[in-house]
Simulated assay, not measured.
Amino acid sequence: MMIAFEKMHANGDDFIVVDLRHRDVPLPPELIRRLGDRERGIGFRQLAAISRCDDATARLLFWNADGTPLDACGSATRGVALKLMEESGTDAVTIRTGRGLLHCSRRGRTQIAVDMGPPLLHWSEIPLATPMETEILPLVGDPAACSMGNPHCTFFVEHVEQVDVEVRGRAIETDPLFPEKTNVHFVQILARDRIRLRIWERGAGISSGSGSCSCAAVVNGIRRGLLAETVEVQCDGGVLGVSWNGTDGVYLIGPVEPVFRGEWIS
């Protein structure tokens, strides 16, 4: 079986795009794990599959490199939006994901903006294992939780560079409080409109950048009264912009870059 793909990255958060609009290819979890293997496969953090859609430019499905599905991936959404815009010669597209219809626009050659939809804040939507308020969780460090289509847990710390992201991220990802596991982020507030963010992604490990994690971190900071509505997010791999007015969708803007195209032959 041959699978054509494009590899891209957003601030080092790498993913591949598989276009299924003209050829249906099964993508079972075991195949995704083989493709995601950095030694024996292509290597990526997420896989995004494009298919046809009646009410949008295209439909997107996402998987982590370990084969687990997810509803949201800000990096891959921006990458696919760039691909669709270049195909159509337009500066705006609408993409249907598990989060609904996401409106995307171009801001310069490789800067893509996406309305990621409203955050989910109720304990059952994230989900958490038991009913509770989600602004402060009963865990050491008093993190906050929300969902951007995938679960997020945000710790606010004094010095983010002193955090052992792998040890703490791995432990929190699998905490019983999160029945579907969780992304984990550590935030140092530099100013009300600027944060330093380090990320542990569910099913993928330490990430140099993540669109949905950046959105969730800013949402939780705004809910705590720590941040302004528009925030510059400094990830390990580069800078993103996130805006949220407390009610509507979370607006994400950042760069995305094509890396190479290829064919996987199994």
Rank of each mutant, 00 (worst) to 15 (best):
I3K: 01
F5K: 05
E6A: 14
K7D: 01
M8T: 00
G12Q: 05
D13C: 11
F15M: 01
V17Q: 00
L20C: 14
L20M: 13
V25M: 13
V25D: 01
L27S: 03
L31E: 01
R45L: 10
Q46K: 04
A49Y: 05
I50Q: 07
S51K: 10
C53P: 02
C53A: 14
D55M: 04
R59L: 11
F62S: 02
F62H: 03
W63Y: 15
A72G: 07
S75F: 00
R78A: 02
V80H: 05
A81P: 10
E86V: 11
E86Q: 15
E87F: 09
S88R: 15
D91C: 11
R99A: 14
G100M: 07
H103L: 08
H103T: 14
C104H: 06
I112Y: 10
A113E: 15
V114E: 01
G117V: 01
P119H: 07
L120Y: 11
H122W: 02
W123I: 06
E125H: 03
P127V: 03
L128G: 05
P131I: 11
E133G: 15
L137C: 06
L139K: 09
G141Y: 06
G141K: 08
P143M: 02
C146H: 02
S147D: 02
M148V: 00
H152D: 00
H152V: 00
C153A: 08
T154S: 14
Q162W: 05
V165Y: 05
R168S: 12
L177Q: 06
L177F: 07
E180F: 03
F186W: 08
Q188V: 10
Q188W: 09
I189V: 15
L190C: 13
R194W: 04
I195R: 09
R196H: 14
E201L: 11
R202F: 08
A204S: 15
G205H: 09
S207W: 09
G209Y: 06
S212T: 15
I222C: 14
G225R: 13
L227S: 12
L227G: 10
A228N: 13
T230F: 00
Q234A: 15
C235M: 06
G237H: 11
G238D: 03
V239K: 13
G241H: 14
G246D: 07
D248Q: 10
D248A: 13
D248S: 14
L252A: 05
I253Q: 12
P255C: 03
P255V: 04
P255L: 04
P255I: 04
R261D: 13
W264Y: 15
S266D: 13
